[in-house]
């Protein structure tokens, strides 16, 4: 359900940027979504099709680039992607990590006419 508010924010951001550029149509929105952000792209697409009707973003395609979770071990500094929710370090087996990436949810660019 939180995809709805994310989609609303995303649409209003895209419309604002398109307006600043005096564009008449948004054809594509490029998004970067981290694995840990909890954002389900299918849901965003579903809400987007619905709420973008009657705007210049209607019919725009959404492109999602998923960034994997990357963790840094606080003990040995190894950077790794966890497998099966096992967040312990594959090198030294210590538990204790810092999230390096995977939480992002941002708009990279929009394509307009």
């Amino acid at each position: 359900m939180h995809e709805y508010s994310i989609t609303e924010s995303m649409l209003s951001m895209a419309l604002e940027k398109a307006n600043e550029a005096n564009a008449s149509k948004i054809t594509r929105i490029n998004l970067i979504v981290g694995e840990l952000s909890g954002v389900v792209s299918e849901c965003v697409q579903f809400y987007f099709d619905f709420i973008s009707k009657d705007t210049i973003a209607s019919g725009a395609s959404l492109s999602f680039e998923t960034t994997p979770t990357k963790l840094r071990c606080r003990n040995c500094d190894a950077v790794f992607s966890p497998v099966n929710s096992d967040w312990s370090c594959p090198d030294c087996r210590e538990v204790g990590t810092e999230i390096v990436s995977g939480r992002e949810c941002y708009m990279e660019s929009i394509e307009v006419e």
Partner: peptide, 17 residues
């Protein structure tokens, strides 16, 4: 009409923040 790419690079939740 030509397609133009506008770089945004902003967090979607900026408005909330």
């Amino acid at each position: 009409m030509s397609v133009k790419i506008i770089t945004v690079g902003e967090d979607i939740l900026t408005a909330n923040e």
